[in-house]
């Protein structure tokens, strides 16, 4: 209903119409961050992004991995934010790296986390309680 508001109500409703042709960041439920230009949407917050990319961030490093045209199912959308062109998208201390480098950094981060989990399992026999 209100998501299908006509032109007059766009600015007083939750309609995504005001975001059309704007550069957006879409946060997904699995934690991924997609960037792109909104070309279509519906009342379920299904959205179509043109020139989409995934912004992978690991610590101080980031990389925008190009994806092309994406249709995102509304269920998986957490938040849609308009990127203000006047402002920096990321803090100045962050470094843009290649896709290969960001994947390497992701892998290292994942392995460090897994190691912590497996060490904990190995120590369980000591019965901390």
């Amino acid at each position: 209903m209100s998501s299908w508001a006509g032109p007059d109500e766009i600015f007083l409703s939750t309609s995504l119409a005001g975001f059309l042709d704007k550069k957006l960041i879409v946060l997904l439920r699995d934690g991924r961050k997609l960037l792109g230009t909104l070309c279509s949407f519906d009342q379920f917050a299904n959205v179509v992004l043109q020139g989409a990319c995934e912004r992978v961030i690991v610590g101080e490093l980031y990389c925008d991995v190009p994806l092309g045209l994406y249709v995102i199912r509304g269920e998986n959308v957490v938040l849609i934010g308009e990127l203000d062109r006047e402002k920096d998208e990321l803090p100045a201390h962050m470094t843009c790296v290649s896709e290969a480098e960001i994947r390497k950094a992701e892998k290292a981060e994942r392995e460090a986390r897994d190691l912590k989990g497996s060490m904990r399992k190995r120590m369980e026999f000591l019965d901390f309680d």
Partner: peptide
């Protein structure tokens, strides 16, 4: 949380 050194919960 899991302690970094002792792996205690």
């Amino acid at each position: 949380e899991i302690d970094d050194e002792t792996y205690e919960e």
